[in-house]
């Protein structure tokens, strides 16, 4: 373990030697989404590909965005928070179980491509054998695994 303790100190020393540059701080909130019409899910349609402040293309909500937003979401949650209240993220990401799965909580929002709709209680065993890490992210701790407990103990 001791060998890892040097890493933060070494990192800080290296960064101290690097020239400093101002960080862009995103605003607290984005203008209301509804005013932006169909462009809402593609940042670049308003912001273009200018990367002077943010790399907007990185946050485009492509059709598989629900599957693969983790890499951008975990780097600066302030960017997500401009348009999404924490409660929006909590419709899927809840540490205490929300009891209702997202497709039951928002049954009319067919455009959100919730994973666990329909037969998923039957099909999840297949996905879990193939890729248990994808289940673990959301159901990996005792509180978020409430829905697993009825069958898995």
């Amino acid at each position: 373990m001791k060998k890892y303790r040097l890493i933060p100190l070494l990192t800080l020393w290296l960064l101290a030697c690097a020239p400093a540059r101002e960080i862009y701080v995103p605003p607290d909130t984005h203008p209301p989404l509804f005013e932006m019409g169909e462009r809402r899910v593609y940042c670049v349609r308003c912001h273009g590909h200018d990367k002077q402040t943010l790399d907007f293309a990185r946050y485009d909500h492509t059709p598989f965005f629900t599957d693969s937003h983790r890499l951008v979401g975990s780097q600066d949650e302030r960017v997500c928070a401009m348009c999404h209240a924490t409660s929006f993220c909590n419709s899927c990401h809840t540490v205490p179980s929300a009891e209702l799965k997202p497709s039951q909580l928002y049954p009319t929002e067919s455009h959100r491509r919730f994973h666990h709709r329909g037969d998923y209680i039957s099909r999840h065993a297949i996905d879990a054998r193939i890729d248990p890490a994808s289940c673990f992210r959301c159901h990996g701790n005792p509180r978020s695994a409430d829905s697993c407990r009825r069958c898995h103990g």
Binding site: A128, P132, A133, C135, F136, H139, G140, N141, P142, S144, A145, C148, R149, H152, G153
Partner: peptide, 16 residues
């Protein structure tokens, strides 16, 4: 890595 990514401790849940 299942041993390194999942966990056997209190902070994990039974299937994992």
């Amino acid at each position: 890595d299942y041993r390194g990514f999942l966990s056997q401790r209190d902070s994990s849940s039974p299937p994992f």
